[in-house]
């Protein structure tokens, strides 16, 4: 292989776009050619430097709001319409109808809480009020909640797993004071809301999407958790499972 060929193909090598056969050829050339080897290493360094999150931009909140406002409004599921449906469908037995209504209502309740959670997340980004206690140390954040809430939310440090703890905050969801633990992944903020629940039954994690944010919710040991972020669903799921395994380990 000539240097001219290698100079083009080393980019594909660097980008992982070469099949095994060609990759070997380029590597063989580079092994015997200090000039191409130096180029490859320079490009590799540049590539690493450009992967820096600082090079990415975060869409300003006013833009997000402008787009939200420009998109047509989505209608919330209408409970009355569902009930009317039952009234008209005489074949539906009263018992079954009751059960279904209960499910519909519970779901609507959950939707309302989810939308509360998203609003709280948005507020936290907006008002410059992301954290009440700003610390990357779990032993500072955890005691801060004591006395402020009925239940101290668990605070675990996930820095080693790629999610930096940046602090804690008091927030309100569904009319109740609730703890929010704030993490950062690259430029993305994750708010983890924790609330006590009467239902001690653990619930497995579920990812939902609302207003363009991903929400992972789960329950464990009498606590409900909602992790909200503009992170992709994969990464948020990763966050949740790392949090859960850190909890189990602790």
């Amino acid at each position: 292989m000539t240097c001219d060929e290698a100079e083009i193909l080393l980019h594909a090598l660097l980008d992982g776009e070469l099949d095994a056969g060609h990759a070997r050829e380029v590597e063989e050339h580079i092994a015997g050619c200090p000039r191409c080897a130096a180029l490859l290493s320079a490009y590799r360094n540049m590539s690493k430097a450009m992967a820096d999150d600082e090079l990415r931009f975060k869409a300003p909140l006013h833009l997000r709001q402008r787009i939200e406002a420009a998109l047509p409004q989505t209608r919330a599921p209408n409970r009355r319409a569902v009930l009317k449906g039952f009234a008209m469908g005489s074949a539906v037995s009263a018992l079954a109808a009751t059960g279904l209504v209960a499910i519909v209502l519970r779901r609507e309740d959950e939707q309302r809480i989810l939308s509360d959670v998203v609003s709280a997340h948005l507020r936290s980004l907006q008002a410059g009020h992301l954290t009440d206690v700003l610390s990357t140390d779990q032993h500072t954040v955890k005691p801060w909640f004591n006395g402020r809430l009925d239940v101290a939310p668990p605070v675990v440090d996930l820095t080693a797993q790629g999610f930096t703890l940046i602090g804690g905050r008091l927030d309100t969801i569904d009319g109740r004071a609730i703890g929010a633990i704030v993490y950062r992944r690259r430029t993305h903020v994750i708010n983890l809301f924790v609330a006590q629940t009467a239902n001690a039954e653990p619930r497995t994690a579920k990812i939902e999407t609302m207003q363009g944010f991903n929400i992972r919710r789960w329950s464990e040991r009498g606590l409900n958790y909602w992790a909200v972020s503009d992170l992709g669903a994969d990464e948020l799921a990763d966050f949740g499972s790392k949090f859960e395994s850190a909890m189990r380990a602790g």
Partner: peptide, 27 residues
């Protein structure tokens, strides 16, 4: 937009699919 588009389900699907990439598109 409202004149062209008035399907709430579709809009919701669109939001869920597209808004998570807002930062990428903005970048």
């Amino acid at each position: 937009v409202n004149a062209v588009e008035n399907d709430p389900d579709k809009t919701q699907r669109f939001r869920d699919a597209a808004l998570p990439y807002l930062d990428d598109v903005y970048t």
